[in-house]
């Protein structure tokens, strides 16, 4: 094995570790929702993903999420909260609000209809 080949092998190992870490283990930043007049509210931009994509809320208090989709790719056309049986169609550059009250603490996923974009709702 030449030095070059060893270098490539080593590079592949390092890259693989990086990829796995990046997608599955790296820390995602969460956003605590702002409470205004009893409702926990957040504005979420939908563009290749949800920004912010980790939302921290308190249990038993109504949550209002204002989604604004800033792309035309049809992947993100719908946002789903399967655990709360809530979904909304997101027309491009329109703000659509979803409201519900999470009762039980826990971690709930939300996603686009095709499961390509993911976000997490952490109920405390």
């Amino acid at each position: 094995m030449t030095v070059m080949q060893l270098g490539v092998l080593f590079g592949a190992i390092v890259l693989s570790v990086l990829v796995v870490w990046f997608f599955f283990f790296s820390e995602k930043t969460g956003a605590r929702l702002v409470v205004s007049s009893g409702v926990q509210e957040a504005n979420i931009v939908v563009k290749g993903g949800y920004t912010p994509d980790v939302l921290v809320v308190k249990a038993g208090q109504p949550v209002r999420l204002n989604f604004n989709r800033q792309e035309t790719a049809s992947c993100s056309e719908m946002v789903l909260f399967p655990d709360f049986n809530k979904s909304a169609k997101l027309p491009t550059s329109e703000t659509v609000s979803l409201e519900f009250t999470p009762d039980k603490p826990g971690e709930y996923d939300f996603q686009c209809q095709m499961g390509m974009l993911h976000g997490k709702l952490i109920v405390e």
Binding site: F23, K28, G49, T51, E71, A73, M116, L117, H118
Partner: peptide
């Protein structure tokens, strides 16, 4: 360009898609 824009926004979310 849409592939690169899409890939970049997914990357920022520590996600990856077709783009």
């Amino acid at each position: 360009s849409r592939f690169f824009v899409g890939a970049w926004s997914a990357f920022r979310h520590h996600a990856a898609d077709m783009n």
